[in-house]
Design a protein around this nucleic acid. Structure first.
Length: 491
RNA sequence: CGGGGUGUAGCGUAGCCCGGUUAUCGCGCCUGGUUUGGGACCAGGAGGUCGGAGGUUCGAAUCCUCUCACCCCGACCA
């Protein structure tokens, strides 16, 4: 999204969809609101999964798996949780089909009606807490630190590739603790893990913060979040971590005997990130030539394109490339050598730019003579000719540099789109023109928050962690405020 | 679910208002040749239930009704 951002902002969606499809990440499936994730898109997800999984294990978590179907009655046990999800649940009512009267189609067999309907999980708190009750008796069973990789279904009215699909892939962590303090620390720790992952691996700068009461997860006492800013000036919630207090423990009667032998309810957290992060990746780094992938997440980090006129030349290049490939692979750099003779070099250049491959090596007869290769960067679109001998070190260095450059570029953009505002008229105007985060005073009431949302479509994205206290007047009500919060229009 | 829009070959489209030969063009695909350092060129060729169903008509991509899918805006949300 480099060119003419302001004039193209209204066109963002089209740009995004075209790019997503053309870069071979995903497509609409024809099933309402669901998407097909294509191999290249899924490869990115797998890299994200691998890294997150590693980070979860390093912080003491284990993976487990819980059922896709949740009995309806489980949902009614935690009141605010029901309110939050009831309107978007897919419900299984029957377990059998039969041939229709005329034998030409199948119909639902009405005699196979379920005694109790099953909900296709929109999130797994309820079934997990129902299970945890059986697993936890003593403080010795705590903490229980479990993560699940799964798909969930939320029957949203309106969907959008990666950002809001009816079915999506995610991980959800659910932990149980003996003390309130420990649960809060866990929720904060996982927010930090998410922030590290998104910033260091996806090269997307985020703001850590807490949600206001009205933006909180259904059933949570505190929701920690990481908020990112997309190139069109809209904010995207990239991950959340919830401190659930004893709400679910009480709802599902999960008690443990503490060291004093007294029964107490456990303290809980849950946290998750989803395939939405791929949407964030696209909208943070891509430009008009296609995707731009940070080296840490790129399924292909280096692509090698041979330039040849005949078989003999290709043969000679193949040999040289084999050496380069081997040397790069020894440094754990993922390399693809595309020596198809069915596509021309120029075609391949464009193809791999579209797919966001961070580095491209072009090697032809001239290079063989001179002992050089041409090295091109995806992020800056610059090219350099270097000696073959220097290539491994140079590529190692450039991959690191691209990773940091992408982050820095996104951070500069983000930072220049955090605007301090003290005047409501100005606030409204900035939302429509510049966009981004608006740091403004808020009186702390849900009423003001709601009124601003109604009038401007902007929501409070978060109250930043470590926010500097500053006395001021609420931008809307004029009442006293002790700190600024971040407003933005969001996806 | 409310408002608006779009569905024509793998992709992007013209035609629709005002019904009338064999449905337009580009990309892609196939064959042959020349090419190959930024999406090659020439020649020939294949590919269509005009989203689906019903209706009006001598005749429907075009008009009418219903329906499905997708996109945008709203409500809802990660």
């Amino acid at each position: 999204m480099s060119k003419n951002l302001t004039t193209r902002a209204e066109d963002y969606s089209k740009w995004y969809n075209e790019l997503v499809v053309k870069a071979d990440l995903a497509e609409n499936s024809g099933v309402r609101g669901c998407m097909v994730i294509k191999p290249y898109g899924y490869a990115i997800w797998e890299k994200m999964q691998a890294q997150l999984d590693k980070m979860f294990k390093e912080t003491g978590h284990q993976n487990a798996y819980f059922p896709l179907f949740i009995p309806k009655s489980y949902f009614s046990k935690e009141a605010s949780h029901v309110d939050g999800f009831a309107k978007e649940c897919a419900v299984v009512t029957h377990y059998r089909l039969k041939a229709s009267e005329d034998g030409k189609s199948v119909v639902v067999d009405e005699s196979a009606k379920l005694e109790e309907e099953l909900i296709v999980r929109p999130t797994s708190e309820t079934i997990i807490w129902d299970t945890y009750r059986k697993w936890i008796q003593s403080y010795r069973d705590l903490p229980l630190l479990i993560n699940q990789w799964a798909n969930v279904v939320r029957w949203e009215m309106r969907t959008r590739l990666f950002l809001r699909t009816a079915e999506f892939l995610w991980q959800e962590g659910h932990t149980a603790h003996a003390t309130k303090q420990e649960a809060i620390e866990e929720a904060e720790k996982m927010m930090q893990v998410y922030a590290d992952f998104v910033q260091n691996f996806m090269a997307i700068p985020v703001i850590k913060g807490t949600k206001t009461a009205s933006e909180r997860f259904a059933g949570a006492l505190e929701t920690y979040c990481i908020e990112a800013l997309m190139q069109d000036g809209k904010a995207l919630q990239a991950g959340t971590s919830h401190y659930l207090g004893q709400n679910f423990a009480k709802a599902f009667d999960v008690k443990f005997a503490n060291k004093e032998g007294k029964q107490d309810y456990v303290w809980a957290t849950s946290w998750g990130v989803s395939t939405r992060l791929i949407g964030a990746l696209i909208m943070t780094h891509s430009d008009d030539n296609g995707l731009v992938l940070p080296p840490n997440l790129a399924p292909i980090q280096v692509v090698i394109v041979p330039i040849f006129k005949n078989e003999e030349q290709l043969e000679a290049i193949n040999q040289k490339v084999a050496e380069i490939q081997k040397a790069l692979q020894q440094r754990n750099i993922s390399v693809k050598y595309d020596n198809r003779d069915t596509q021309k070099p120029g075609w391949k250049f464009n193809e791999y730019e579209l797919k966001g491959v961070p580095l491209r090596i072009a090697i032809g007869p001239k290079d063989l003579e001179n002992g050089t290769v041409e090295l091109a960067r995806r992020d800056t679109l610059t090219k350099e000719v270097i000696a073959v001998d220097a290539i491994v070190d140079r590529i190692g260095h450039l991959l690191d540099e691209i990773q940091t450059t992408l982050f820095q570029k996104a951070k500069n953009f983000r930072d220049s789109h955090i605007t301090l505002v003290d005047d409501y008229t100005n606030f409204k105007e900035l939302l429509e023109t510049k966009g981004g985060f608006l740091a403004a005073h808020w009186d702390g009431t849900p009423e003001t928050e709601e009124a601003i949302k109604q009038e401007t479509k902007a929501t409070i994205r978060c109250i930043p962690i470590g926010n500097t206290p500053e006395n001021g007047l609420c931008i809307y009500s004029g009442k006293p405020s002790a700190q600024r919060v971040l407003f933005a229009k969001a996806y």
